[in-house]
Design a protein around this nucleic acid. Structure first.
Lengths: 229, 229
DNA sequence: GCAACTTTGTGCCCGCCTTCACAAGCGGCT
DNA sequence: AGCCGCTTGTGAAGGCGGGCACAAAGTTGC
C-alpha cells in the first residue's frame, strides 16, 4: 500500500512510450483509409520498427490482438489514446512568442492531436496584448494566475536561454508538471516535474558529425579522430 | 589501409555524440564567462549528466584533461568542434516554408552555430520568389540544381506529411546525405543517408502519458493500466 | 469437423550504455 | 623536496532495450 512502486503491475519502458505515440498516429491514418484490422508486420513496416518490438510494446498496454488476423484498428486506437492520456484534451501553455514560439503557437499539429495551446506568454511589451492565432499574448508575470485558472499542467518554453530557468520556475510554481523545453539550457526542476528537451542545433550537430565522419576516412590518414594517440 | 572500419581506433557511441554537442555549447558559455579550466564534475552538473559518463565521453575523442585540475576550456572546445565537424560551416537546405519552416529559417541558433540555412524551397507559388531572412524561396523542383551548385549535404524537411517522402527523394538525389525531418512520417532512404526525426506532437504525447500516469494511481483502483489482467 | 496457414505473445540471449569504484597522475603547500 | 588532496581515465558490473525464434491460438478452406 506504500504509494509508488508496487502499484504498477506493468511499467511501460520509456522507449516504448515514444513508439506508442507513433503507432497511434499511423493507426489514425489507417482508419482514414478504411482499414479495419492491421497486422503487427504491416504496422511495424509503416512506422519503421521491428515487428517483434511492436508486439512487445503493445503487450505492455495489455492489448489483445487476434492471432491469425491482427489488431482491430479502432479498438487499438482507442486503447492507445487512453493509455497515453489523450482521452481528454490537455491545455498547453507556451512561453516565449519569438521566432520559434510563434510557429509553435500556429502549428496545427498540437491542437489537432489533443493539445490545444490555450495560453501564450512573453515579456516583450510589443507582443503582450497581441492575439496570435486567436490567443492573446499575456505577460510572463501572469503565468501563475492564468495557469491555475485554466488548470494547465503542460508548458512549453521557447524563450532565449537566459530567460528559460526563470520562466521554468514560474511554470512550476503555477502547478505545471510537464515541460517541453526548446531553450538550449538544462533546466533545474523539482523531482516531480518532468522535462523533455528539444534542441534543434544539437540535432544538426549530430548530423554534421556523421557527415564529417563519412567524409574524412577517404581523404587521408591523419583524420579527425585518433589525432594524438 | 583498407578504407572503412579499421581506420577508426575508437568508435564514438551515438549517445555520446549527442552529449558532446551539449558539452560544446556549455564550454562556449564558460569561455564567455572567462573560465580557463573546468572539472568534469562542474561541466557534468551544468549539462545534467553523470560526471563519470562525461569523462568517458571525452575519452572517446582522445581528450586529455589535467588530473588535479580539469580540462582546458579553450583546448577542449576546439577539439570538440573538430570532432563534431564544426570547424567549417555546413550549408543547410530547408524544404517547406510553412509555419514551422518559416520559424526555422529565421531561427538564429542555426547560423550562429555553424549551420547557415542557405537554401529555401516550397511548392506554394505565393512563397516562391519571396525572400525570407535574406534568402529567396525557390521551387522544390530546383532542389537538385541548387543543392549541387552550393554543395549542400544537409537538409531539413518541414513540409506536411504527405509531401515529405517525395521531397526526401529529391534531396537524396541531389546529394544530400543527412536529413533532419520534422514531418510526422517515417522516411525511406538508402542506407548511406542518415535521417533524424523531430516529432513535436509525439514529444507532447510522451509528456501527457506521464501526466496521466502520475494522476491516475491516486484516484482509485481501476486505472488506465492493468485493465484486463 | 479437420487440417493448414497466419499471426500474436513472449522467453531468451546479446550488445550497448550507464554507473560505481579505484588506481594513477598532477599541482600546490609546507 | 616531499607529501597531500584533487581530478582524470578506465576496468568491471549491472540494467535496459532490441531482436530472434517458437509455441499458442485463432481463422480459413474443404
Amino acid at each position: 500500500m506504500t504509494p509508488g512502486q508496487d502499484t504498477a503491475p506493468r511499467v511501460i519502458p520509456e522507449a516504448s512510450v515514444a513508439r506508442l505515440a507513433v503507432y497511434l498516429r499511423m493507426l489514425g491514418e489507417l482508419a482514414e483509409q478504411g482499414a479495419e484490422t492491421v497486422s503487427s508486420e504491416e504496422l511495424a513496416a509503416a512506422t519503421g520498427v521491428n515487428s517483434a518490438k511492436l508486439r512487445k510494446d503493445l503487450s505492455y498496454i495489455g492489448s489483445h490482438g487476434i492471432r491469425g488476423v491482427g489488431y482491430d484498428v479502432r479498438a487499438l486506437r482507442y486503447q492507445l489514446e487512453r493509455v497515453l492520456g489523450l482521452d481528454h484534451r490537455q491545455a498547453v501553455a507556451l512561453v516565449g512568442v519569438g521566432n520559434l514560439g510563434h510557429a509553435l503557437a500556429g502549428y496545427g499539429g498540437f491542437g489537432g492531436r489533443g493539445f490545444p495551446v490555450t495560453a501564450l506568454f512573453d515579456v516583450d511589451p510589443d507582443l503582450v496584448g497581441v492575439p496570435i492565432n486567436g490567443i492573446l499574448v499575456e505577460h510572463v508575470r501572469a503565468i501563475p494566475a492564468v495557469c491555475a485558472e485554466r488548470g494547465i499542467t503542460i508548458g512549453m518554453i521557447a524563450t532565449p536561454g537566459q530567460a528559460a530557468q526563470a520562466v521554468c520556475n514560474q511554470l512550476v510554481a503555477a502547478g505545471v508538471r510537464s515541460i517541453l523545453n526548446f531553450a538550449p539550457v538544462v533546466l533545474q526542476v523539482p523531482r516531480e516535474v518532468e522535462v523533455r528537451k528539444v534542441d534543434l542545433a544539437v540535432e544538426l550537430q549530430i548530423l554534421a558529425f556523421h557527415v564529417s565522419r563519412r567524409a574524412e576516412p577517404a581523404v587521408n590518414g591523419h583524420a579527425v579522430n585518433g589525432v594524438l594517440p
